[in-house]
Simulated scan of single mutants.
Amino acid sequence: MEMETQNGRQELLIEPNRQALHYWRDVWEYRELFWFLTLRDILVRYKQTAIGVAWSVIRPLVTMVVFSIIFGMFAKLPSNGVPYPLLVIAAMLPWNFFTNALSESSGSLIGNANLLTKVYFPRIIVPCSSIIVSLIDFVISLAIMAVMMFWYDYLPDWRVVTLPLFLLLAFLPIAGAGLWFSSLNVKYRDFRYLVPFLLQFGLYVSPVGFASSIVPEKWRLLYALNPMVGVIDGFRWALLKGSSELNLPGILLSTVLSSVLMITGLWFFRKTERILADVI
């Protein structure tokens, strides 16, 4: 809308629709911008790199080998009859998706500061496009696991059709945490140092290098307070013929906590979005 300043000049003030219905309609109308930002981030991600997309192959393979040696060969932790590399790679699918998406989305608003201060569009498009970019690495890791399953002659059964459900469950904490940290990173710039620490800590308290079966039964529900526990167990159950136990109370708890994280993240992001141009 137009407004008159003290010196008599007319200026154009661009402001978002505050009503929720109008806001989500704006998100749909700006869908082309969403795909443009996604494609741009994909191209920039591998631009001027020595081996390009190969990084997405090397990282999960190296991590899988290290975890298999430490936990499988040296610690001799149980794998429930599954080749230990498969146990690890099945957990790394959702975990790497989570870490990559959270790392990218948490700094997405700061990285697009010039764009955010010039024109109006629903700001939620920016962190969401960063999350979609992380699906590239997920697909590559899924292809690596498919090759390994053929190598070990350990093909999935009917449970694999439930994999999209657990992928959807993974989206909830990813989107919720991404919205929280992208907003907090704008208001408090030192949060960019907190995210890597939390991800490193989360790696040790999530069943990536080991099976959840080693956790004592009395601590299972408390352990499931980590939303990624239910997601990782679900991926293993779907891909490894149900060899990993599916803790239904834990899955339910993870779903509830992830939903709360998503809802509160969306609420806080919308609250921060109104003052974004002033503090960025």
Rank of each mutant, 00 (worst) to 15 (best):
T5N: 08
R9A: 13
Q10K: 15
L13M: 11
E15H: 12
R25Y: 13
E29G: 08
R31W: 11
E32L: 09
E32S: 13
L33G: 01
F34Q: 04
W35L: 12
F36S: 10
I51F: 12
I51C: 05
G52R: 10
V53H: 07
V62L: 15
F67H: 07
S68D: 10
K76W: 05
K76Q: 13
Y84G: 02
P85Q: 13
L87C: 01
A90L: 02
P94S: 07
P94H: 08
F97G: 02
I110G: 04
I110N: 02
F121R: 04
C128A: 14
C128N: 07
C128E: 02
S130V: 05
S130R: 00
I131Y: 03
D137V: 05
F138E: 00
F138N: 11
A146M: 13
V147D: 05
W151Q: 05
D153I: 08
W158K: 08
T162W: 12
P164T: 02
F166E: 01
L168T: 13
P173E: 00
A175H: 05
A177N: 07
F181A: 01
F181Q: 00
S182P: 03
S183Q: 03
V186N: 03
V186E: 04
R189N: 14
R189A: 11
G202L: 00
S206L: 01
V208W: 01
A211D: 15
S212G: 07
S213N: 09
E217M: 09
L225N: 07
I232W: 09
G234T: 10
K241L: 04
L248H: 10
G250L: 14
V256K: 08
S258D: 09
V260M: 09
M262N: 07
F268Y: 15
R274A: 14
L276I: 12
